[in-house]
Design a protein around this nucleic acid. Sequence first.
RNA 1: GCUGAGGUAGCCUAGCCUGGUAGGGCGCCGGUCUUGAAAACCGGUGGCGUCAGCCACGGGAGUUCGAAUCUCCCCCUCAGCGCCA
Length: 433
Amino acid sequence: MLDIDLIRQDPRHVEENLERRRHPPYVALLKQALEVDTEWRRLHGEADRLRAQRNRLSQALARAHKSGTPPPEEVSREARELPAQIEALELREKETARVRDDLLRRLPNLLDPSVPFGTDDTGNVEVSRWGEPVEPGFPLRSHGDLAEAMGWAEFGQARDVSGAGFYYLLGDLALLDLALQRFAVDRLVQKGFVPVVPPYMLRREPYEGVTDLADFEKVMYRVEGEDLYLIATSEHPLAALYRGKILEETSLPIRLAGISQNFRREIGGHGVDQKGIFRVHQFSKVEQFVFCAPEDSPKVHEELRANAEEFFRALEIPYRVVNVCTGDLGVVAAKKYDIEAWFPRQKAYREVVSCSNCTDYQARRLGIRMGKAGKPGKRVPHTLNSTEVATSRAMAVILEGGQAPDGTVRIPRVLIPYMGGRERLEPRNEIGR
RNA sequence: GCUGAGGUAGCCUAGCCUGGUAGGGCGCCGGUCUUGAAAACCGGUGGCGUCAGCCACGGGAGUUCGAAUCUCCCCCUCAGCGCCA
């Protein structure tokens, strides 16, 4: 949610920013919100005056009551008539506020100046590139086919018992999933992040603070008969960790490393990845999340990006970083980098990390403030989030890029200690796992 | 799931029976004093506002001129019991 004070003080600035999305309805929404707000302020003032009058009358009646003298007739008459007027006015005031807030909530975050314009992901701008894609000397198998052939995954039975988009991981691939998570967490802890295993379900109300309403229809699983939703990413419960709280200025930045399963209903198109773990309903992810002072967020954004880049360099996976354009950015982030890893079989860069600066948009909706408790002058902190690793995606790259003609897969050097010292993923039947 | 107790400002708590518009403590901020600090004392402490004021006692509805207080509905938390990895 945008700052209503900013909109009142400098509507032109907000309008110019919204125009950069080249989506005229946003500007119309803004103007409407501003009009409704003006009306609300008028109603609010009027209702305030009537309430003040009511308080004065009530006190006069209380005094009369105490002294035992009956109050003047016109006082008690006005006291009887006022509540109906107040009620009518308050009803309009409340309704107007509701309309204004609805309009406000539909406005996206303000864009960072560096965000390029574009209508979809083809408008994203490459900002850096690391590693040399190598040509394999033999035809590569898709990660799904390979995993199934080597006994590391079972898709058919998962489809039968849970539906398309689910999978069993078995043997070395199950271990690789855990190894990636533990490696990612260890690195972040070393950098001062607090590891967090959050709730995997949230109630609707706190959930509305962290995501836009469309997600409830499209993305999230709802628990039957309960006011609970399965989290789509640990970003959500991590953001909600301080909902309604005041963060001590000196404790910032707060760096959290979320460890969770993630559940997503809509998983988009299929094609070459129909079989596999690239797009699935459930996956493990280690997430970076930071609360910081507004002036620090650009620096922290680069820090999160650097952390994610280092992770993929440690895995020796070539990648590029793109500055995500307006059409691909979504409403919550002010700026977003995607890291796209090189998939050698597909000969394409594909998204493995998403790194966002949400500025104050998320924190304001969650009612998170910063400052000293009891001291005036609270500010709204900024929130940022970035994937460290989504294991499903990382495993897909490792399987594609690390495979040998015999089907075994080279384990990235840094993960060997996490895999019992072994250097290759071995077929399940051959080693009895 | 059952029974009971609760939800008051950043935190703790009084007020509820008997309706008159939220008091105290801690913390924090500022001031006085001091070489400096502590102590002491004074003032402040959330949200909205067109800066008159208004709102805020878990949420909503009702009764009333007036509700933290009375009535009803709902939510949440804790304790004990039950169930349980």
